[in-house]
């Protein structure tokens, strides 16, 4: 069922002119960003190719979510350019930024569903806000999007009645409601049971290919991310420390990448938080 819809939509998209197929959708150059006196990004360059799933990985607290907010224009960098479809996001006027955002989807970690309206209305929300479609068409559109994430039957539930995985799928249906050119996933796998995880992994891949979208997945779940990503950037301490295809990263010689990919407790990222000498510390307390 899902594949069928996918083929139809794909054939529709193929008819549309696409002059800049080979240029990356997002180009980030020399990005610096700091918050509260702390440097989060210290000169980052990265490209997100069109039509692919690009993963951005790194330990917690390295600013992966911040990077998505910078791309979405919710934060402004200290310096550097963020070109999304050849528009520099930090310099866009409010009006142009909102125009661009209509073509971006973002899946928040919490789902960020509106809690006072049901599933159907949540998915219909962006459509109602941005189009003047008749009610019957909105209904069909919403049901199609819900069908794509397998939750057509849950349309009358309230967000509080959904499990974490279902909430994320509803949020996904809402994010694709306006058929965006790209979608950003913020930690889509965190806190999911194995079944929901499998569903989400499959959905991200399928939607990306069926809708010919560009996907950016921010995550620290190594196994799932490697399984779906076409290209991976690894960020740590404000810099990109490795990038390449999943295979390249898997066979990387860098001790840091090895520690991260294989989840080893000690290595270049030490197990201990910086402290003075252990013995000295114990003795000084005794006196």
């Amino acid at each position: 069922m899902m594949d069928n819809t996918g083929t139809k939509i794909r054939s529709l998209y193929k008819k549309m002119p696409d002059n800049n197929k080979n240029s990356p959708l997002i180009e980030i150059r020399n990005l610096h960003f700091s918050r509260g006196g702390r440097m989060i990004f210290d000169g980052i360059d990265l490209d997100i190719p069109r039509g692919k799933i690009t993963a951005i990985m790194g330990p917690s607290g390295t600013g992966k979510t911040t990077l998505l907010r910078l791309i979405g224009g919710q934060l402004k960098p200290s310096s550097g350019t963020i070109n999304v479809d050849r528009q520099n996001v930090p310099e866009l006027s409010r009006r142009d930024l909102y125009k661009l955002r209509k073509r971006m989807g973002m899946l928040f970690q919490s789902g960020a569903l509106l809690t006072d309206i049901n599933v159907f209305e949540n998915v219909a929300f962006p459509v109602r806000e941005h189009t003047k479609l008749p009610e019957s068409m909105i209904r069909s559109l919403v049901l199609m999007k819900l069908e794509a994430v397998g939750l057509r039957g849950a349309r009358d539930l309230m967000p509080s009645e959904l499990s974490g995985g279902m909430a994320r799928r509803v949020a996904l249906a809402r994010a694709i409601a306006l058929d965006p050119m790209m979608i950003m996933y913020d930690e889509p796998f965190t806190g999911q049971d194995p079944i929901s995880m499998g569903v989400l992994v499959q959905l991200i891949r399928l939607l990306n290919d069926a809708l010919n979208m560009t996907s950016i997945v921010v995550s620290h779940d190594v196994k799932e991310t490697i399984a779906i990503a076409d290209y991976i950037y690894v960020i740590s301490e404000g810099k990109i420390i490795a990038h390449g295809s999943p295979e390249q990263l898997n066979t990387s010689d860098s001790p840091w990448v090895k520690q991260f990919i294989h989840g080893m407790p000690d290595g270049p990222v030490p197990f201990h938080y910086p402290a003075k000498d252990y013995l000295e510390d114990l003795i000084s307390g005794a006196g």
């Binding site: 955002r101 971006m104 973002m106 928040f108 960020a112 806000e129």
Partner: peptide
Amino acid sequence: SGMEMMAV
């Protein structure tokens, strides 16, 4: 934030 990202 979600609304802002939906251009609302």
